[in-house]
Design a protein around this nucleic acid. Structure first.
Lengths: 343, 343
DNA sequence: GTTATTTACTTAAACGTTTAAGTAAATAAA
DNA sequence: TTTATTTACTTAAACGTTTAAGTAAATAAC
């Protein structure tokens, strides 16, 4: 590592000496400064290329107060939603000179705090974050903003904070999905969700509640099961118990991994989907159409959300002065109807 | 950004002045150096904490020639395999002081080359990579090794290179899966795969071929369809055409996203799984047991591969001198039998 | 009581860039 | 021809750490 005898660590000074120029000239030539002759630029670039010179990013960042690095902070990655978001981000940013640091909070507030606190150090130029579901105190986020680090929320935002956000219409989607279940004949729709302070869960819950209220004539009262936010057998048990005790004929699932758990719970209970119970899930899994039965989903614009979020950040960073805290985008989700809610 | 009037960018010098100490003392106190008194250490740490001081990582990295950053280079992220690998990596490294840069090659050799070339700059202390499927020339990798940057391959390695690798037993898994299909009664098993120089694909193909050879009495000759390595309608068409022209009664799918495509193709052709055609797929998707019908899978130890790969890198980086190029781990995959191959 | 050692610091150089300021030579303007 | 401007560089400081080397005071050894 330190003494890599093989690789000759070529730096700017070495390059300068090789070309009999000053490091200043090298630096400017490589960045196409106007006050270097074309001839010299060509000479420098050729040599840099030939010797595999790549500028040390730590030195540059230190000097320029710019890291050309963005932090992506998400709860989990084993989820097609976040995977697609990252793809969206990368589709915009890959061609730029930016680098991406990825941090997983595992949906823990404490981890989120300690991760974000570190960002005041200049490690990153901006942050894209989908907050942990139990994040209610937002001091760590405000602190970062006060330190001048731009933040864009995506998917899960903190409504109370003045910060840019790119979300989808969770309330509406849940409302539509619940209505859809009722319209397909469900008399007793339960919500299977996870506990959290985060807007997406509360919005989805509210959308669900509102739909039931509006359809009060045909539906029972809200009935909600709170699962853990990871794929475990525990959730299957929770859902099964609920199926036994509450006997719902419709389920709205708010998280991707709950689809598998709910299906398995129904199989185990010998409940037929959609004859005995109808199911809708918020998910972007590509397998939805080949499930047994094909799953009606609320498909979120994950890729586009990633693109929009990084787009906002870049716009801010390139000093096209936008007021980040005033930027709020709500991209529409889409209800994709399949067999699991067939009448 | 530059003049963040609100946030007072506190650095070591400011902290030193506030405590009437030199920066050297601050630096050492924060790193628990033996030649600072306990009293002073406490004072420094308290102040650092109170003032939200976080050391500038660019300055540290520049001075120490260590970035505490690892690059993860993968083809795609919209894939539960790589998601799980990243989770595995993070499970080991999250508690350490390391940061992760993520790079997507989109399975393009050219992108891979340009990404890796940049790593000679000192940006990262090590690289975890799963190479692009069309990577055959490995000069870019050797170059990095010669520059002293440790590399660990996972999943997709370059067999011809002397470098650490953590893979799974692709040949064997494909062999077992193919044999399983034959044992379940298939007379004509086709391989649906993607083209690539990468060992996983060639190994899986060889395992498939070998199994057919060994079972020559009952099976037809190898029949292989090469799809594109992303989830597109084009692949569904390719598979359908193959179903028509070759009339296989068994399919071995080598990539996760092909499961959905193959199922849809069969549905469209009114082929019943497993009665008319049996299917096995290399996939870690959690929905496998709730597909129609439940899918027999080759489940790869993705999480464990991530853990092992980062473990090797850390072992090397902490100067427990291991010869990285001699470390080769093959973790077993598991054939999980379900309805899709039922007799 | 003098000398050696230890303790707890400080000084200053270094890491590899970038950039403001400076400069000599060439060209243009007067 | 003298002065002003432009061209194409160089010098040197700065970014914020870390660390080798130095040092004064306190303690220990003799």
């Amino acid at each position: 590592m330190e003494d890599n005898t093989g690789g000759k660590k070529i730096n700017m000074k070495a390059l300068a000496k090789a070309l009999n120029l000053s490091t200043a000239t090298i630096s400017k030539a490589l960045r196409d400064s106007y006050d270097i002759s074309e001839q010299t630029k060509a000479r420098v670039k050729e040599a840099a290329n030939r010797l595999n010179y790549v500028a040390n990013p730590h030195a540059s960042s230190l000097r320029k107060h710019l890291s050309n690095t963005i932090a992506i902070v998400i709860p989990e990655i084993a989820d097609s939603f976040f995977s697609q978001v990252i793809n969206g981000i990368e589709s915009i940013a890959g061609r730029e000179k930016y680098h991406f640091l990825i941090y997983l909070t595992h949906d823990s507030y404490e981890r989120e705090v300690s991760i974000l606190n570190e960002f005041t150090s200049g490690r990153v130029d901006g942050v894209l974050i989908s907050v942990a579901s139990n994040t209610s105190d937002t001091a760590h986020i405000s602190k970062l903003q006060q330190a001048g680090i731009p933040i864009v929320f995506f998917d899960r935002d903190c409504a109370q904070l003045p910060a840019a956000s790119v979300t989808t219409d969770d309330f509406n989607s849940a409302y539509l999905a619940t209505s859809h279940l009722v319209e397909q004949g469900c008399k007793k729709v339960s919500l299977i969700t996870v506990q959290g302070y985060v807007s997406i869960f509360s919005s989805r819950e509210e959308g669900y509640r509102k739909a039931l209220l509006d359809k009060a004539v045909v539906t029972g009262s809200p009935d909600i099961v709170y699962c853990t936010n990871k794929y475990t057998d525990e959730n299957i048990t929770l859902i099964r118990e609920h199926l036994v005790s509450a006997r719902p004929d419709g389920l709205l699932l708010t998280v991707e991994h709950l689809a598998t758990s709910a299906y398995l719970a129904c199989y185990q209970m010998k409940l037929r989907i959609p004859q005995d119970i109808k199911i809708v899930c918020f998910t972007n899994q590509i397998t939805a159409p080949v499930l047994d039965p094909p799953l009606t989903t609320i498909l979120q614009p994950a890729y586009e959300m990633g693109q929009k979020a990084i787009g906002l950040l870049f716009e801010y960073l390139s000093h096209n002065y936008i007021k980040l805290e005033e930027e709020h985008f709500v991209l529409p989700s889409r209800l994709v109807m399949r067999e699991s809610t067939k009448n």
